[in-house]
Write a protein that binds this DNA or RNA. Structure first.
Lengths: 185, 185
DNA sequence: TTAAACTTTCAGAAATTACTGAAAGTTCAA
DNA sequence: TTGAACTTTCAGTAATTTCTGAAAGTTTAA
């Protein structure tokens, strides 16, 4: 199977990007190709389109499945497996964030918690533990926030976006109200 | 220079994480160590603390400088250079996001724009270009949104966070108002 | 100017990661 | 039950990335 030259550029570019996002180059390429293909592709089509070995495709597919990014299907009277990308672009982004959270952020939070629980055992550790606490708090905040955003549809998100600088204005109003309530002098 | 065992765990863990975030292991370790060190460290201290070569430290420092993550300083009567991490934890996170945006998202957007500008040259490209457009739009939205958030202080962000599920409620109210205005039947 | 005290560079070596292809495994129709 | 049509596995190899250490470069004090 050959790919058109524009689609090639796309696929190769996302191969490079993939390698900065937790996949290797060929897995990135495989996924990119599935994303822009209207119909599901077979393993052999992937292998020939990307000039990689059949074995490599098999490993890549396994990896993409572990990220929950692709779907299997079959056509009647054909024993081959057909692969396609799951969901909208927004879903894909969410899935990748979610998966990376599980693989990277969660273990980090749990390490930080356990180190902080022990407490500083000498002077050099006091400063260090403060920083660890900051990192912990920031990561926790980001994860919660991300969970919040993921619940929004892209349309809602885009509305929120268009609020634009309004978000910070809204916040400052809220803060003023809040401080007045608490400290009405 | 030796590191305490808890600080070791931290440094090694962030070495591993670093390698998933665009640095290599030792660069991640160097940065982690600088972050939890109260006082600036010399290149030799970094090398001995992490058991890596002096040359490696030199390259790592260069890399961290290109990410704008560390700062140089000097002590009077000493010709060595002293390195320390720049800014708060929130600043660090912003810097890393910002730098990755420049290195990854921007080139991707520009590739997508140029492919989309050419337009589809055959049937298989029509579907592909739709997907590319979706990815383009999503990336653009995320970048703008991120820029918006970066302008907020961590305190403001945390206020926004505490709004929690409120954000989506607020949005649905806004949407209802908006749709009534536009289509009052 | 010299030389001591430092930093950077970079060729080659080491470590890590990715890929191939042949063999083993699975499934199913006949 | 056999074998054709497929998929998976994995040992060995290839490609890539990272690291070392020696040499070259820079700066400053005397």
């Amino acid at each position: 199977m050959e790919i058109s030259s524009k689609n090639q550029s796309f696929v190769y570019h996302f191969g490079e990007m993939g390698s900065k996002w937790g996949f290797n180059r060929t897995v990135g390429q495989m996924y990119a190709l599935l994303v822009i293909s209207e119909k599901p592709l077979t393993a052999n089509q992937l292998a020939s389109a990307l000039s990689i070995s059949r074995g490599n495709v098999s490993m890549g597919v396994k990896e993409l499945q572990s990220w929950q990014l692709i779907q299997l299907s079959h056509v009647p009277g054909d024993r081959k497996e057909y692969y396609s990308a799951i969901g909208s672009v927004w879903d894909m982004a969410n899935t990748v964030f979610e998966e990376r959270r599980k693989r990277e952020v969660d273990p980090t939070l749990s390490l930080l918690r356990s180190l902080l629980l022990e407490g500083p055992s000498d002077d050099t550790e006091v400063y260090a533990q403060n920083k660890m606490q900051d990192i912990h708090d920031l990561l926790e905040m980001i994860t919660q926030w991300a969970a919040e955003l993921q619940r929004l549809s892209p349309e809602q998100l885009s509305t929120l976006m268009k609020l634009g600088a309004g978000v910070s204005k809204m916040l400052s109003v809220k803060e003023q109200l809040f401080s007045k309530k608490k400290d009405p002098k």
